[in-house]
């Protein structure tokens, strides 16, 4: 009987959060299309930016058959998968993290904490940047093209694994960002750490092998970032082992727990000093 009640409670909570997210999707969409000129300019900029990185790799690898042990098409696939991944990340999470750092800096976090929903949920999912969806579309189209060029087929299993790998990568990157931004509660002046995070996240765009020349200490710091992208690309290349999957799941689980704990501990120190 008790377990039945628990199930009803969980399903009710899920429904509530799904409803909140649906409303947020609608509100964000309306806000976006309100300024049409801006909408189209942003759309075009986003498309150009997603193609830009792939073109760069295309040029850089035009005369070399392989770099860091990755063939030209494998690197291009990595670049296009990065576009898909970062498109999702910017669409769902990154703008919220930037907003969170700002709210902490200006002492406005109270507005977020007082809402009758989980604070981490409202901190993470409030803004949806639909424009970044263009990066997902461009990335998927390019990935499909590169897979065709490499004569690699993609079946149902690969699609499921690919989505899971992208989700794992998002979870890893989100956990890193949330942990770092939560720490700004202790020192709000660090709010522009978000800019730094945007750039550090680019580390995932290149193969792990590239960073092996740096010192062991720095490489150890960079390792989690290299987990955000490689698994998804390896899935498409049919080169994804159970061990790699376990490693990624392990890193994701540890970082998620750590991020949630840091968030909770940091909130206890929030003083709303500026408001």
């Amino acid at each position: 009987m008790e377990s039945g009640n628990k199930k009803i409670f969980i399903s009710g909570t899920m429904k509530k959060y799904l409803f909140v997210y649906k409303t947020l999707l609608l509100l964000n969409w309306e806000a976006l299309v309100e300024y049409r000129t801006s909408f189209f300019t942003k759309l075009f900029s986003s498309m150009l930016y997603s193609a830009y990185h792939v073109i760069t790799i295309l040029l850089l690898t035009s005369t070399v058959p392989s770099v860091f042990g990755w063939s030209r098409y494998e690197l291009l696939l990595l670049a296009s998968t990065y576009s898909v991944f970062i498109g999702f990340y910017h669409m769902i999470i990154s703008q919220n993290m930037a907003r969170l750092a700002e709210e902490i800096y200006f002492g406005r976090l109270d507005f977020l904490l007082l809402k009758p929903i989980d604070s981490q949920f409202s901190a993470t999912f409030w803004i949806i940047d639909f424009i970044s969806g263009t990066r997902i579309v461009v990335g998927l189209l390019l990935s499909w093209y590169f897979l065709q060029a490499m004569h690699l087929g993609v079946g149902f299993t690969e699609v499921v694994l690919y989505i899971s790998a992208i989700a794992l990568g998002l979870c890893i990157l989100y956990s890193i960002w949330l942990s770092v931004i939560s720490l700004t509660i202790f020192n709000p002046r660090l709010s522009n750490v978000v800019d730094l995070l945007f750039h550090i996240s680019e580390i995932g765009r290149y193969p792990r092998e590239m960073y092996k020349q740096v010192s062991v200490f720095i490489f150890a710091i960079l390792i989690p970032f290299t987990f955000i992208m490689i698994p998804a690309t390896r899935v498409l290349l049919h080169d994804f082992s159970a061990r790699q999957a376990l490693e990624a799941v392990g890193v994701c689980a540890v970082l998620s727990i750590l991020a949630r704990s840091i968030w909770k501990i940091s909130l206890r120190s929030y003083t709303s000093a500026s408001s």
Partner: peptide
């Protein structure tokens, strides 16, 4: 100061990514 230093760290990261990419190539 802290904002400016973080800005510079960002620039160094950016430089290192490009540097290592070329080193590897």
């Amino acid at each position: 100061r802290l904002s400016f230093i973080l800005w510079r760290v960002r620039i160094v990261v950016q430089l290192l990514i490009v540097y290592f990419m070329w080193w590897a190539i």
